[in-house]
Write a protein that binds this DNA or RNA. Structure first.
Length: 424
RNA sequence: AGAAAGGUGGCCGAGUGGUCGAAGGCGCUACCCUGGAAAGGUAGUAUACUGGUAACGGUAUCGAGGGUUCGAAUCCCUUCCUUUCUGCCA
């Protein structure tokens, strides 16, 4: 959520930013925000004055009662009746205006960073880096879902039976490879200075709202109605919310966190070949990294995160590229996002495996996550997060890119974690 | 799940209807004292919204939301959370 104050002071910047996202009706909404905000302030002042008067009279009444001047007190009492009605009305309109403002602000996405290019879809994303060799697998290369069946390491039908589509069962070496990847990722993150957390997999409404899942993506989360809890779509939600409402010291920066969790997504409305196999699931595993940073340092931090993820993919010897997302493809809450895509040789397409973003103050505003600056004032911090990394597509990439006549080789760095070097 | 007790500022803790944003202590900051430090002394030290160039004001906030009252941290209702006991159990 953007700060009203910011919109008030930097209207043009906001409009230019939203134009890069191709955000419809930006001008209308911003104008409305400004009008409602002005009304809100006016009402606030009027209410404050009314209450001030009422408070003053109450004090006088107290004094009169003490002095035994009951009659005078009773006269004043009548006066407060009018003020009470007035303040009640004003409170109601203030609440209504505040709600209206809030609803409007929830509609407005983050203002993209200066480096973000205008654009509508993934077509307009900029490729800024690529690395790794795409292996020559020959004619007989199989997509991962065929390989999974051939070696009996992932069972989609079994998951179907137990739960439904999009909930695979990992078996034998498949399960061990999955567990190895989780441990490997966590170890890499810890080595880079991230503190490991094990967090709840269900969150309350306040948490889902603070990181921006609600109200924007309501239908995309699994929801336990009875307890009013949401299954997390990403570890970003519980991890970032650990810091909700905090007032930290500048010396606490950088605050870094990593955690492994399963992620649950309803993925309502996804169909077709692009969702085959591990490409899109209702439950998948992911290791996440989160940072809370001083505003002056958040883009350095984002850079660090990108370098860190590069490093992991380099070690795994997987061919990948990095995209800087265009305005239209950048998530609602992010100011700048780098997507990492892995080349799936057998599917002949790029698969998104990580996304690293700086949210600037957009999340911190809802989170009320602040720090004391040098002047002793509290100021919103910047939050960032990234996947390091998402499991299923990395797994798919390994299966596909490392397939040989003899079986699927395991990347060298993973062998100490798996305890075997080939799946055959 | 049932019963009881409780939720007050960065922390501890007092406060059961009136100048209480809240005693006292700890912590923190500045200054005094000191060769330096400790101890001691003095002062300051919540957040949000809002008015004002500023100085300085106003309003709200004692878990949250309602209510009673001229007036609520204090009384009533709802709700959430914590602790203890009982129950259940990985």
């Amino acid at each position: 959520m953007l700060q009203v104050q910011f919109i008030r002071d930097h209207k043009e910047t906001v409009l230019e930013g939203l134009a890069k996202r191709n955000f419809a009706d930006a001008e209308t909404i911003i104008e409305k925000v400004l009008t409602v905000d002005e009304n809100r302030r006016k009402t606030q002042v009027e209410l404050d004055n009314t209450l001030a008067e009422s408070n003053k009279i109450s004090k006088e009444i107290g004094g009169l009662f003490k002095a035994g001047e009951i009659q005078k007190a009773n006269i004043l009492k009548e006066k407060t009746g009018v003020l009470k009605t007035k303040s009640k009305e004003l409170t109601e309109s203030l609440t209504a205006l505040a709600e209206e403002l809030q609803t409007l602000l929830y509609l407005i996405p983050n203002v993209p960073h200066a480096s973000v290019k205008a654009g509508n879809s993934e077509e307009d994303n900029e490729k800024i880096f690529s690395e790794g060799t795409i292996p020559d697998l020959g004619e007989n290369a199989l997509p991962h879902w065929e390989l999974a069946k051939k070696y009996d390491i992932i069972d989609f039908e079994l998951g179907n039976k137990v739960t439904g589509a999009g909930f695979p069962v990992y078996k034998g070496k498949g399960a061990r490879l999955q567990r190895a990847l989780i441990n490997y990722f966590l170890d890499k993150n810890i080595e880079a200075g991230y503190k490991e957390y094990q967090v709840p997999h269900l969150v309350n409404e306040a948490s889902a709202t603070a990181t921006g899942q609600l109200p924007d993506k309501d239908g995309q989360m699994y929801h336990s109605k009875e307890d009013d809890l949401y299954l997390i779509p990403t570890a970003e939600v519980p991890i970032t919310n650990m810091f909700r409402g905090n007032l930290v010291q500048e010396s606490d920066f950088p605050i870094t966190a990593t955690g492994y969790t399963p992620c649950f997504r309803r993925e309502a409305g996804s169909y077709g070949a692009h969702v085959r196999g591990l490409n899109r699931l209702h439950q998948f595993d992911k290791v996440e990294i989160v940072r809370v940073e001083h505003p002056d340092n958040s883009y350095n931090a984002l850079n660090d995160m990108v370098e860190h993820i590069k490093n992991i993919l380099r070690e795994l010897k997987l061919p990948y590229r990095i995209l800087r997302l265009c305005g239209g493809d950048t998530g609602f809450t992010a100011a700048l996002t780098f997507d990492f895509e892995l080349f799936s040789t057998a599917q002949d397409r790029w698969l998104e495996i990580s996304s690293a973003s700086n949210f600037e103050t957009f999340q911190a505003n809802r989170l009320k996550l602040r720090f004391k600056n040098k002047e002793g004032k509290s100021e919103l911090a910047h939050t960032l997060n990234g996947s390091s990394l998402a499991l299923p597509r990395v797994l798919a990439g390994i299966l596909e890119n490392y397939q040989t006549e003899e079986g699927i080789k395991i990347p060298e760095v993973l062998v100490p974690y798996t305890g075997f070097s080939i799946i055959n």
